Simulated assay, not measured.
Amino acid sequence: MTGRIVVVTGTGTGVGKTIATAALTVRELGNGSVVVVKPVQTGMGPGWGETADVSVIHTLTGCDVLELTTLDDPLAPDTAARLRGVSIPPIAEYADRIRALAEGHDCVLVEGAGGLLVRLDTDGGTLLDLAADLAAEVVVVVSAGLGTLNHTELTVQALRGRGVEPAGLVVGSWPVEPGLAETCNLEDLPVVAGLPVIAVVPAGAGALDPATFRDRAPSWFSAPAPLG
């Protein structure tokens, strides 16, 4: 058995990628065995007070998780590695480990770090390189507010430029009281990207208790706006 590989990227940092990955995990758990992989996690050194993304996902979903490389400082992975003078694996090694996981699971969800072109190794390799190497499905997590149309279109164009057609968009944090920009963006995102919005995750979803999160997450995929 070789399972599907789904790469989750964002249009930038802070768009809700981790919680969106958790929601995708809940959906995939209904179809079989799932493992969530974080190739590189930064900001885990003493004094930074960061919580590993995979820990958040495990708490919310109960899914198996795996972190491949951990770096101290909250910086882009290649910068964090160079700052401390440490070696980190190249993209090809991450790809091999993810393929091995896919042999034993129905789905491997791979959460990136920051945006699509953030360098994950010190050789210039990016999440885009990893997705192309794996021939993975790609889901793009986007913000709801001003600027999202430009950031989304740039990300989608970069994927298509490498022959990777994204599966769809996820709005990572939909406000309780959306304004004019958010409402219009929800209509315009599919137009500018040429992709469906497959889920809309409500703001604050990560603060739900795990049972409530697992109960509500499927509804975020079945309606054009979150049901709360």
Rank of each mutant, 00 (worst) to 15 (best):
86 V>N: 13
173 S>L: 00
211 A>C: 07
176 V>R: 15
16 G>F: 04
176 V>I: 01
2 T>Q: 13
63 C>K: 00
175 P>T: 12
207 A>F: 09
139 V>G: 06
27 R>Y: 00
84 R>T: 02
107 C>L: 02
7 V>G: 05
223 A>R: 14
86 V>I: 14
162 R>W: 07
182 E>H: 06
82 R>W: 00
60 L>M: 13
47 G>Q: 12
189 L>P: 00
162 R>H: 12
45 G>D: 00
193 A>Q: 04
130 L>W: 14
51 T>R: 14
172 G>F: 05
46 P>Q: 05
197 V>M: 02
153 E>C: 04
169 L>P: 08
205 A>T: 03
133 D>M: 12
101 L>F: 08
58 H>N: 13
56 V>D: 09
195 L>F: 10
145 G>L: 00
224 P>T: 11
204 G>S: 02
174 W>L: 10
154 L>G: 01
195 L>A: 07
61 T>R: 11
109 L>M: 05
168 G>V: 11
217 A>Q: 03
138 V>Y: 07
123 D>F: 00
109 L>R: 07
166 P>Y: 00
161 G>A: 12
8 V>A: 06
65 V>P: 05
198 I>G: 08
154 L>K: 03
177 E>S: 13
97 R>W: 09
145 G>H: 08
211 A>Q: 11
72 D>G: 14
110 V>F: 13
43 G>K: 08
139 V>L: 04
29 L>P: 01
122 T>W: 10
204 G>N: 00
79 T>F: 06
216 R>Q: 15
123 D>Q: 14
40 V>T: 06
125 G>D: 02
214 R>A: 14
165 E>M: 09
163 G>Y: 11
16 G>P: 11
208 L>Y: 11
184 C>K: 07
94 Y>R: 04
